Computed example of a mutant assay.
Amino acid sequence: MFTGIVEVIGVVSEYQAYDTSESGGSGVSITITECSEILVDVHLGDSIAVNGTCLTVTEFDKEKTWFKVGVSPETLALTNLGDLKAQSKVNLERAISGEVRFGGHVVQGHVDTIATIQSVTSDENSLRYTFKLRDAKFIAYIVHKGFICLDGTSLTITDVDQEKKEFSIMMVAYTQSKVVMPLKKVGDTVNVEVDLTGKLVENQVRAVLENQIENKDSSLVKLITQIVEKKVSELVK
């Protein structure tokens, strides 16, 4: 679990598509450096969010100046990690421990989809970003003043256009200096993790409705029956 509060911006030192080393697992591996401050307590198997994607540490050097992670095909399909290359900058956050203050919101590091930057405009010392979702269905979980995690950064939604499948956020000057998004331009993508709360509520409501509909004596079925009977009666008259 993460908070969406980026700890440090790391730099990709190596992006290897077919890493045959033991820690690479014959798949895609990414080596990240310039992040020693978050490696002081690192262990193999630890989780670190890279641009909002929860990845497992498979290797690090004795001096703790770099670490390596593996990336599965599914993760590559859902995220923009496949666009990384040597010298790319990435947001990094360690998984939280019990004593950490919770500054952002509950972030799993499980990216739902990506979004494309549609526009960037200045608003005094802040930047206003508008994004368009690749997978339109996730707009259902994006609400005005709700939480969203973009490239591992916890942000507040300032506007939602359900029809265009677009949403906007504001980024204050302090945050701009701590994350990679200001380095991106219109047309670039960000990893999107919608607020888990919306998914949980939807799942619970669906389960309750399905149970109610299957039970002919439920209050919902009785209500629907009454409404239908009333409408039929009005049509007959």
Rank of each mutant, 00 (worst) to 15 (best):
T116Y: 08
T116P: 08
T116L: 11
T116F: 03
I117G: 09
Q118E: 15
Q118R: 11
S119V: 04
S119L: 08
S119D: 13
V120F: 04
V120Q: 15
T121V: 15
S122N: 11
S122C: 01
E124C: 02
E124D: 15
N125C: 04
S126Q: 09
L127N: 09
Y129N: 08
T130K: 13
T130V: 15
F131D: 06
K132Y: 03
K132W: 01
K132R: 13
L133T: 11
R134E: 09
A136K: 13
K137P: 00
K137Y: 04
F138K: 11
F138Q: 02
I139H: 06
A140Y: 05
A140G: 01
A140W: 05
A140I: 01
Y141D: 10
I142D: 09
I142N: 10
V143L: 13
H144I: 02
H144A: 07
H144Q: 13
G146A: 08
F147C: 08
F147T: 03
I148A: 05
L150R: 06
G152D: 02
T153H: 05
T153M: 09
S154P: 10
S154N: 08
L155S: 07
L155G: 09
T156C: 06
I157L: 09
T158W: 04
D159H: 12
D159V: 00
V160N: 12
V160T: 10
V160A: 14
E163Y: 00
E163I: 13
E163L: 14
K164G: 00
K165S: 15
E166D: 02
F167N: 07
S168T: 06
I169V: 15
I169R: 07
I169T: 08
M170N: 14
M170L: 14
M170K: 13
M171D: 03
M171Q: 13
A173L: 07
Y174K: 09
Y174N: 11
T175A: 12
T175N: 10
Q176V: 03
S177H: 09
V180K: 13
M181W: 00
L183G: 12
L183S: 13
K184N: 02
K184E: 00
K184M: 01
K185A: 11
K185L: 01
V186F: 01
V186D: 04
G187E: 08
G187A: 05
G187Q: 02
G187R: 06
D188F: 03
T189I: 05
V190A: 11
V190K: 13
N191M: 03
N191I: 03
N191C: 04
E193Q: 09
V194K: 15
V194F: 10
V194R: 13
L196K: 12
L196V: 10
L196S: 12
L196W: 08
G198R: 06
K199R: 14
L200H: 11
L200V: 12
L200D: 07
V201Q: 05
V201H: 01
